[in-house]
Each structure stands twice: as structure tokens, then as C-alpha cells.
Write a protein that binds this DNA or RNA. Structure first.
Length: 298
DNA sequence: AATCTATCCAACCGCTTTTAA
DNA sequence: GTTAAAAGCGGTTGGATAGAT
């Protein structure tokens, strides 16, 4: 027989919370704090299990919750952090003030995942959805720089479970794909892929290219509103494209020329679309052809 | 207007980790 | 060192709602 939850065992209320229950829980915590969660329902006069109370408080009642739709910056940050941490929702949420792990997880599953797939990126690996063989054909041995794990952009095992906390509590106004990045010394090594405009590991790449500055300057997208989806594409491919001598077409676009702020959003959207279509139609093929040119004849 | 379908999100479930006795 | 309880976490489910037919 399947194990029953604590709520089942004690025949406690389940399902959605009523405003009255919320009020009871709020009042109790406001007066006494939560203390031991298992004792909260009894003390607060609720027919819920402590676990349920805790969840309700954390995900819904906490006064410091932000709620509402996620901003572009938050979205960027989530994607970025997911590429580093994987499905560590609590750790990702810890970098987003006022957001809960549940909220971030839901946002990822219902929105970002879909967006990434639409863009041809595997949300699980942050790699293009292209066939591995085709990918290798295009990117050649540069692909070897990418760890063959499920999460290629993932940081190395973290000694501190949450080093990001101490090192880079990233401000939400930080321009993820914008202008100057924070000093590299303040950032996790593995973050360079996004923060510096997109390399998996500049050192490794440099070595791969023979060192001595053979690596082109990192590509720093100029569009202020460009999403991390774009950054990811850059992070995923810019090295490949650069190494292969291809220039990403959108880099020449000048969003600053769009003076009317009211059109920024639609412009950004259009720009995003343009980048992706041009990227796959242009730079991708350019890289492919370049790669082909590098292959021994025959 | 009725029905179907897709989407979103709050809440639950069960497992793991941490803490206290 | 062992054990049980509590807390934390990530995956999943189910209900509400919006949009399409």
C-alpha cells in the first residue's frame, strides 16, 4: 500500500487555502514567528500539516514576495543560472529577491522551456537541439571543448553549496547581455560564458587555439534588451563561430538608433527573431562552410 | 452557448538532508 | 554512533481559467 502523506494520516485539510486560513497563519507567524513548523498548525488553529503551512508561507504569504510577472532581467538570470546550476530551483531563486523556488520552477516549466525549444535550444542541456552528429559536423573539434555531460555549461562541482551567495549576489539591474560586466574576479569562473560575452572557457579555448591571443575578443552583444536566449546562442556558438571565422550578423545592429522607447519592446522582439533566424541561416552556415573548408579535401 | 484544449500555478508527494536527542 | 523528527527540495498533479472551435 502506498505511503500516505502526513495530511492523510491525520485527516487534515488539503487543497487550496481559504482566506481565513491564510489570515490565521499570517497572524500566528506575525505574533510568534514560525518556530517549529510541525507545531504551527496546532498553535495557529489550523487543520493543516506543518509542511503545508510552511509551503503556504514560503510560496505565498511571506511579506517579501514580489509576485507578478518576471522581468526580462529575471528571465535572463534564471536562464543563466540554470545553465550553471541545473534544476537547483532553490539556489536559483536565492539569486532572485522576492521569488520562490516554486515560482521559478513554474516559470521555467511553463514559459522558458517552451521559448528555448522554439529557439532550437534544448532546455535541459542548453545546447542546440540539432543532432549530435550534425552538430559535430558544423562545429568540428571545438565541440570537444564542451564537456559531454548533460549540463555542459554547468559549473564544476561547487565546494560551497551556494558560493554564488557570497560572491555574486547579482543585482537585478545588472545588464546581463548589455554593457560592462562586473569585474571577472567577482564572478564564478564558470560564468564567463555569459558575463564576458560568451565563451565556455576562455583558457581552454585559448589553449585549444594555440594560446598567445589566438582567440578573438569575446562578443559582447550591443542590444540592451537582448535576452539571454540570445546570449546563450552566443555562449553556445560564438566561440565556434569566431574560431571558424564567422561574424554573427546581429552584432552590427544598432539598437541605440531606435530612439523611441515605446518601440523598444517590439524592436527587441523583432531583433530577437532576426538574430535567431539570421543566426541559423547565416552564421551557422558560415561556420559550417568554414568548418568544411578546414576539413581535409575529400 | 457549449465544449474542448492548452496553459498556468498552487499545492501535494516522496525523497534527501539536517538537526536534535 | 544511532535514530527519529523536522526541514528542505525537486518532480508531479490537479483545478482554475482563457482561448479556440
Amino acid at each position: 500500500m502506498a505511503k500516505q502523506s502526513c495530511c492523510h494520516k491525520k485527516k487534515l485539510r488539503r487543497g487550496l487555502w481559504s482566506p481565513e486560513e491564510d489570515e490565521k497563519l499570517m497572524n500566528h507567524i506575525a505574533k510568534y514567528g514560525h518556530g517549529c513548523w510541525s507545531s504551527v498548525p496546532k498553535l495557529a488553529g489550523l487543520e493543516r500539516c506543518g509542511k503545508s503551512c510552511r509551503l503556504r508561507w514560503i510560496n505565498y504569504l511571506r511579506p517579501d514576495l514580489k509576485r507578478g510577472t518576471f522581468s526580462q532581467q529575471e528571465e535572463d538570470l534564471i536562464i543563466h543560472l540554470h545553465s550553471l546550476l541545473g534544476n537547483k530551483w532553490s539556489q536559483i531563486a536565492a539569486q532572485l529577491p522576492g521569488r520562490t523556488d516554486n515560482e521559478v520552477k513554474n516559470f521555467w516549466n511553463s514559459y522558458i522551456k517552451k521559448r528555448l525549444r522554439e529557439r532550437g535550444i534544448d532546455p535541459a542541456t542548453h545546447h542546440p537541439l540539432a543532432e549530435p552528429a550534425a552538430c559535430r559536423a558544423v562545429f568540428g573539434d571545438v565541440v570537444d571543448l564542451i564537456p559531454a555531460t548533460a549540463a555542459p555549461l554547468q559549473a564544476p562541482p561547487l565546494a560551497d553549496p551556494m558560493p554564488l551567495d557570497g560572491v555574486t549576489k547579482l543585482p537585478l539591474d545588472w545588464p546581463v547581455a548589455g554593457a560592462a560586466a562586473p569585474p571577472p574576479s567577482t564572478l564564478p569562473r564558470s560564468s564567463s560564458c555569459y558575463l564576458q560575452g560568451g565563451c565556455f572557457d576562455m583558457d581552454a579555448l585559448q589553449q585549444h587555439c594555440g594560446g598567445g591571443g589566438a582567440v578573438p575578443a569575446p562578443v559582447v552583444p550591443s542590444a540592451s534588451s537582448s535576452s539571454t536566449l540570445t546570449s546563450m546562442a552566443e555562449a553556445e556558438h560564438c566561440n565556434n563561430a569566431n574560431v571558424a571565422g564567422a561574424t554573427l550578423p546581429w552584432l552590427e545592429l544598432e539598437p541605440n538608433a531606435v530612439a523611441d522607447a515605446g518601440h523598444i519592446d517590439s524592436y527587441a522582439g523583432a531583433l530577437d527573431e532576426l538574430r535567431w533566424s539570421e543566426y541559423f541561416d547565416g552564421a551557422f552556415q558560415a561556420a559550417a562552410s568554414q568548418q568544411g573548408a578546414l576539413q581535409p579535401a575529400g
